[in-house]
Structure formats: C-alpha cells, structure tokens
Amino acid sequence: MKTVRVVAAVIRAVNKENKPIIFATQRGYGEFKGGWEFPGGKIESGETPQQALKWEIMEELDTEIAVGELIDTIEYDYPNFHLSMDCFWCEVIHGELILKEAEDAKWLTKEHLADVEWLPADVTLIEKIGEELHETKDSK
C-alpha cells in the first residue's frame, strides 16, 4: 500500500474569554470533501516537516505560522493508502487565516472539539489535543 507523508498544523490561540481554541478547516475538494481536518499538506522531497507545514499554511491560508512542538505522528490506513501525519502545535505570526482551499473553518474550544465531523485520521488526535488545551490556560 502506498504511504503518503503529510504534516498538520494544530493552530492554537486564546478567545475573548481567555479560553484556548484551535483552528479546524473543512475540506473543499477531493475524496474527503466536507470532512473536517487540521490544515496542512504533503511533505515534498527535500523538505523537513516544519518547512512543509510553513509552506502549506502560507499557500492554503495566506498566513505565516510558528511551528512548535510535535504533538504526535498519526499512522492511519485509508482504503487506498497509508497516511503518516506529523502533527505540530502552531501559532499565527502574521496574517488573517484566509481560506484559499477550504470550504469553511472554525475556532473550537475544548468543549466543542466534537462538534464537527473530523476525518478519520484527525479523530485520533482529538483526545490528545483536548487534554493539552485543558492544561494550557495561558497559551497564545
């Protein structure tokens, strides 16, 4: 089975109530159109995961991010390929998160992480992210 290596940005911020929130996007194209995911994309030959992530977020959201700590590497078997996804905590440095490819986007608090229909590979991250959001009171 073909392996596809990708990176995903778990972009976090703090809302007006000083609660930690994360950014989720809804796929606007392809086989998984309409599913919710963390933004990112494929790692090209010669790129580090961090370089790929910065490039993908600039391309998809017109935003510059700082790539932080690796949260996890998700290994997931879809019917036609194996996905290997490096997921990093990220923060916006510059830009407004303009949707260039996604159909929709939402900022979600820990309590609302389950309010969207996540793509299967992304679901495996939700519990871990929820725990981190709970512990991170003053992240920005």
Rank of each mutant, 00 (worst) to 15 (best):
G41Y: 03
K33W: 01
E117K: 12
T136F: 02
D86K: 15
K16V: 15
D72G: 09
A102V: 06
G41N: 04
E47V: 00
W36V: 12
D72Y: 09
E75C: 09
G34W: 08
V67Q: 08
L108I: 05
F32M: 07
T73F: 05
K33M: 14
T63Q: 09
V4G: 00
L113H: 03
I65S: 04
L70S: 03
M1G: 13
M85P: 10
L97D: 02
L133Y: 00
E17C: 10
W107M: 14
D77L: 13
L97I: 12
D122N: 08
W36G: 09
E91H: 07
R12V: 04
H112M: 09
E31S: 05
K106Q: 15
I98A: 10
Q50D: 06
D122R: 01
V116E: 04
R27W: 01
E17T: 14
I74A: 05
E91W: 01
I22V: 15
N15M: 10
T73C: 11
P39L: 14
E75S: 12
E31I: 08
G130M: 06
C90K: 02
H82W: 13
K19L: 15
G46N: 08
T124H: 07
Y78S: 04
E59D: 09
E111D: 15
E59K: 07
D86F: 09
I43H: 05
M1I: 14
W89K: 05
E47Y: 01
L119I: 11
L133D: 00
E101M: 08
I65W: 02
N15R: 06
E117R: 13
D104T: 08
E111S: 11
V14Q: 14
